[in-house]
Design a protein around this nucleic acid. Structure first.
Lengths: 194, 194
DNA sequence: TAGGACCTTGCACTGAGTGCAAACTACTCC
DNA sequence: GGAGTAGTTTGCACTCAGTGCAAGGTCCTA
């Protein structure tokens, strides 16, 4: 389980590239930063950048390798009650409250930047992906219901994020997330009344 | 109100470009079609293409100019009851049922194409935009609640779309949309009970 | 310590998207 | 009807994202 030298070096390069991207984009704005700039700042070649990230935006939004594991664990620890939407709210609330530190910097960057407003979805796409995996594991024979759970939660997270003023502390974002999730209810399709 | 020659010609060029894009992408796939190809097929120059569409994907997903007006009218005709989510469902159901013909071709194209699976959101982004305008007009002092309504509806539409098998008739898509929308409820934040 | 797996890098190429300036076309107002 | 103006088309040259390939380097394993 201890990392080999290769794995360690790979993670280091990944983080150097991520760090350089975030720093340069913070300083100059997304459009004014080229991949060459990032690669140079991270001490690697342009070609290596593309070995780690498929696109320029990915360097900003791809989740840290360790984050994936944490999210995975969170979905496994989640309660399993008769109300899947409540369980999903539990996962979202835990995730947001835990506040992955690296992620929060990017959050604030995107929220504050006009030119990145087109990508609000990207910010929590990996969360939504994890939720979708959770949901489809739980309801394998109901793709509509499973996707509906994760997509709706994703929408609520996105709305909370868009409404959040990045100048205010992160707790405010947590509060908005709670309010957004609390205002929505998702039943399994087929059990609707009306 | 009758179009000037200029307006008519502009609309014609817009539609020629859209039509060429859809046709070529259907034949060859998105990646294998260049903007040059599209421009040539539409009988204009590459540079003119970019006068009409900011990106290649926009040529596929931007709503037909007339569609915007129709959507606008739909949001004005919508009922105004004490249950905004119900009103929103009415708008979505009407829109989907009316079935804008041009749009449906693109829908089917995207749903059937593996390489466009990353863009499912784009398909109904303009609908979501119209819904957001409607919601923020109705709840100007509650941005969270307004966005939550439109984003959730958008998520439901997206899920219905992703779950839809494009080989089946459009009515199936309508049915999925109804089921998805019926399974979700959005209250105004602040009026939640747990 | 030798061979293979994996990683980095340079090079050359395609194609998206943009700024600019010149030619062209439709509209307007006299 | 004709001159001026505003909007449109187009070519050209440019930047930069992203990809394929092949040569060299580094780590790991037997």
């Amino acid at each position: 389980m201890t990392q080999s030298a290769r794995e360690a070096s790979r993670l280091a390069t990944w983080r150097a590239l991520r760090e350089a991207t975030v720093r340069l984009v913070t300083e100059r704005g997304f459009a004014a930063v080229t991949v060459d700039d990032v690669a140079a700042a991270a001490g690697t070649s342009r070609r290596t950048f593309f070995n780690y990230f498929p696109t320029k935006t990915a360097a900003l939004f791809d989740p840290d390798p360790e984050l994936a594991g944490r999210l995975e664990r969170l979905t496994e620890e989640a309660p399993v009650t008769g109300d899947p939407w409540a369980d999903l709210r539990w996962i979202c609330a835990s995730f947001v409250r835990w506040g992955p530190p690296d992620t929060l910097v990017v959050y604030r960057l995107v929220a504050a930047s006009g030119e990145l407003r087109d990508y609000p979805v990207q910010v929590h796409r990996h969360v939504e992906t994890a939720l979708e995996a959770w949901a489809s594991r739980r309801f394998p024979d109901d793709p509509l219901g499973a996707r509906l759970l994760s997509a709706t939660a994703g929408a609520a997270l996105g709305v909370a994020f868009l409404t959040w003023d990045p100048a205010t502390p992160a707790e405010e974002f947590v509060r908005l997330t709670d309010r957004a999730l609390a205002a929505v209810t998702v039943r399994r399709p087929g059990t609707e009344e009306t």
